[in-house]
């Protein structure tokens, strides 16, 4: 039955390619994907573009506050550091921090949400009240207090972000699970004697993946904002490390004379958040096989 085997592999490939095919049609999502890829690419290869120790954090008083030119694409700051180099190195921090913290938050939040939504009853009550307590504090305030309590470091920032967003994911995923749980195909699976774990993994989560991905990308954008805001307030990444929020903070003193010091990191923040939102919206549509081509 080699023919059938071929069919199987063919199908597996086509499912991924079908999603890609649908995503390609969405111009805005593609724009978001391209911007994101460029930013991630720049962040990954940041070391080849600009050396960290000399250009990014090294001081050079002779090069202070230069306007954008061919040599310094985005100008230099009051310490003579290249703003472009700092921005792409800053992307490294912002993007990786937001991706890691969101992955943690999605994993834990999804687990809590699935357990609460699927099993219901008292488990649901206890878990959701816990989440309510966390939700009662705005993510920003939550992160500030966690960082303040644990001390200022990158790891603590990660923990703070993850904890702040776990209840958001738990809620979204729980409500998605609730609506899927009541559908007949779940009952059909139960009628075959399918175990709870298999029902969750094979029947419920694949159908909940759309909202999860959308929420994850949107929240990643929000996380970038929180990281920048915390750094701006001096609670996130410590200077001289280049972080977009830190750069905004440092640039605000000279904002009238050299606005490009805040414009470029600002654009970087805005572009990354926007591209994540566009991509998230596009993915939601592309992941739904019910949408016709």
């Amino acid at each position: 039955m080699t023919e059938q085997e071929e069919k199987q592999t063919y199908k597996k490939r086509s499912q991924v390619s079908a999603v890609w095919h649908r995503l390609k049609k969405n111009k805005l999502a593609m724009l978001g994907l391209i911007i994101l890829c460029v930013m991630i690419g720049l962040a990954v290869f940041a070391d080849f573009i600009a050396d960290y120790d000399t250009v990014v954090i090294g001081l050079d008083t002779s090069q202070r506050l230069l306007t954008p030119s061919l040599e310094h694409l985005c100008g230099t700051d009051q310490f003579g550091r290249d703003v472009f180099a700092r921005s792409i190195h800053g992307g490294r921090l912002s993007l990786s921090l937001s991706i890691i913290s969101m992955s943690i938050a999605v994993a834990i939040g999804a687990f809590i949400g699935v357990v609460a939504g699927y099993y219901g009853g008292r488990v649901d009550d206890v878990l959701m009240r816990l989440m309510d307590i966390l939700l009662a504090i705005p993510p920003m305030l939550m992160s500030i207090s966690i960082v303040a309590a644990l001390g200022q470091s990158m790891v603590n920032l990660l923990i703070a972000l993850a904890i702040a967003y776990i209840p958001v994911f738990a809620r979204v995923i729980r409500s998605t699970i609730l609506s899927i749980k009541g559908q007949e195909f779940v009952e059909a699976a139960r009628a075959c004697g399918t175990s709870n774990a298999r029902i969750i993994l094979r029947h419920i989560i694949p159908n909940a993946i759309g909202p999860i991905i959308v929420e994850a990308t949107l929240t990643m954008g929000a996380a970038i904002l929180v990281i920048s805001s915390l750094s701006f307030m001096g609670l996130g990444i410590e200077p001289p490390a280049p972080e977009w929020g830190t750069m905004l903070y440092e640039g605000r003193e000279v904002i009238r004379s050299s606005p490009y010091l805040v414009i470029f990191p600002g654009i970087a923040i805005a572009l990354s958040v926007m591209s994540l939102n566009l991509l998230g919206d596009g993915l939601r549509d592309a992941l739904d096989p019910r949408l016709k081509n």
Binding site: A188, C192, S195
Partner: peptide, 25 residues
């Protein structure tokens, strides 16, 4: 089941749906 729209998992192919009880058993 009554509703042939709701009783089939939209994320699985026809073969996968029919194979589910066989995998479980």
């Amino acid at each position: 089941f009554q509703d042939p729209y709701a009783s089939l998992n939209p994320r699985l192919s026809v073969a996968e749906i029919i194979a589910e009880p066989l995998i479980v058993s």
